[in-house]
Amino acid sequence: MNSAKANILAKLKMQLPAATDAALPAEPAAAPEVRSPAQNVEQFVRLLTDNHAEVMRIKRAEIAASVKTLLQQRDINQLMCGSGWVDALQEIEGEISLNTFYPSIDGNKDTLFNSVPAAITGSRCAIAATGSIVLWPDASEPRSLSLVPPLHIVVVEQSAIYNDFGELIRKQRWSEQLPTNAVLISGPSKTADIQQTLAYGAHGPRELVVLLVE
């Protein structure tokens, strides 16, 4: 044990003769807001829209076509995706050039930062109370996909919207299985650091488009 650790712990332990948290009163449980699944969807869409994200409510069969339309509206003709998306997006390959992520980010950072205008990812689930999308990146869908390109398209399943973050953590037993990096995203990157004026696209994506699949 190094000496800094030993010293810090010794100081802390010396100060707690028999003090226990059992003496503390019970922590009050916050009453969760009750919403029907339909209200959850409505709230999720409203909060994300308020936070400057674009939400498109579509059917599963419309994913590829919607991606094509929204890219063409922005004059973008290439899209980066994880390996899991290649099949689903095959029908637009002719008009949009699809690139899967590199074998590794190492050695490819310059292209990722400078030549990738848009990326698409899936999501694990979503949260109605805060209008948040939960990303659970893995080997097939790297974490920089939702971070570096200026446009991030994310597909969210309407059936995977949870009431709030606390409920989600408990129901999905997160404490037993956290990935390398889990991220909650609630809008495009933003800042109000200059004279409290909100500006979008600080460092992450300037635009967040959510494809909400029924």
């Binding site: 909060l47 936070n51 992520f101 590199y102 074998p103 590794s104 980010i105 109370a129 805060t130 209008g131 948040s132 893995d138 080997a139 790297p142 974490r143 920089s144 956290l178 990935p179 390398t180 990096n181 889990a182 991220v183 909650l184 995203i185 609630s186 809008g187 495009p188 990157s189 933003k190 992450g204």
Partner: peptide, 19 residues
């Protein structure tokens, strides 16, 4: 009600991960 990003880091890059 929440920040744009809430980032939870539990491991360094693991075998097979690309970034």
């Amino acid at each position: 009600i929440i920040s744009t990003y809430f980032n939870m880091i539990t491991h360094p890059r693991r075998e097979g991960e690309k970034d």
